[in-house]
């Protein structure tokens, strides 16, 4: 299978690290090599945050992704930051509730959806991250639907078990976009 190098980027608090954790768990369930690396630097304190998730069938070298083939951008600065870095043919998912200028490159595929508003309208406030994971799941060969649902169950901490159902609904919402 193709190596997936996914970057989730946006503001701190949008659940980017958690979205990355869900994808990493999907890789774990499928028995693939997995790495998950958060930005933990000064940008965590109020600015942009991102995380790199690699799923591969070979041992992973650097967990820091320089050239993503999947980008999930949840705000404008993040899209600007990673727009040039993505490889030709990359799939870029933008939350147009917060992104108003889409990439101009013609060698990439852009999926633009107002994920934050869609989540809110569906009573799933704060789950735009998982809405976008649902869309990524549909548009890439990331894993099966069953694997992703199991990954959500695994990634949601036990003390927040009541959140599993909402996350599954958000996944469904994104998958059907």
């Amino acid at each position: 299978m193709e190596e997936l190098r996914v970057v989730f980027a946006g503001f701190g608090g949008q659940g980017l690290l958690f979205a990355g954790k869900v994808v990493a768990n999907a890789g774990l369930i499928d028995g693939r090599e997995v790495s998950w690396l958060p930005s933990y630097g000064p940008e965590m304190r109020g600015g942009t945050a991102n995380c790199s998730v690699t799923l591969s069938d070979e041992p992973i070298g650097s967990p820091l992704i320089m050239n993503p083939n999947v980008l999930v951008a949840m705000n404008q600065p993040s899209l600007v930051k990673f727009e040039e870095a993505v490889v030709p043919g990359a799939k870029v998912f933008a939350d147009t509730s917060l992104v108003n200028r889409l990439p101009q490159r013609e060698d990439i595929e852009v999926f633009a959806h107002p994920a934050t508003e869609l989540a809110e309208d569906a009573g799933l406030k704060g789950l735009a991250n998982i809405v976008l994971v649902g869309k990524v799941l549909k548009e890439t060969a990331l894993c099966s639907r069953e694997t992703m649902e199991a990954a959500i169950r695994k990634a949601v901490p036990a003390r927040k078990a009541q959140m599993v159902e909402n996350n599954l609904q958000a996944l469904e919402l994104g998958f059907n976009l």
């Binding site: 954790k21 990493a24 774990l28 090599e33 997995v34 790495s35 998950w36 690396l37 958060p38 933990y40 992973i60 967990p63 820091l64």
Partner: peptide
């Protein structure tokens, strides 16, 4: 180092 400490792997 910070990379190894912060990263997750199986």
């Amino acid at each position: 180092d910070g990379m190894l400490g912060q990263m997750m792997e199986p």
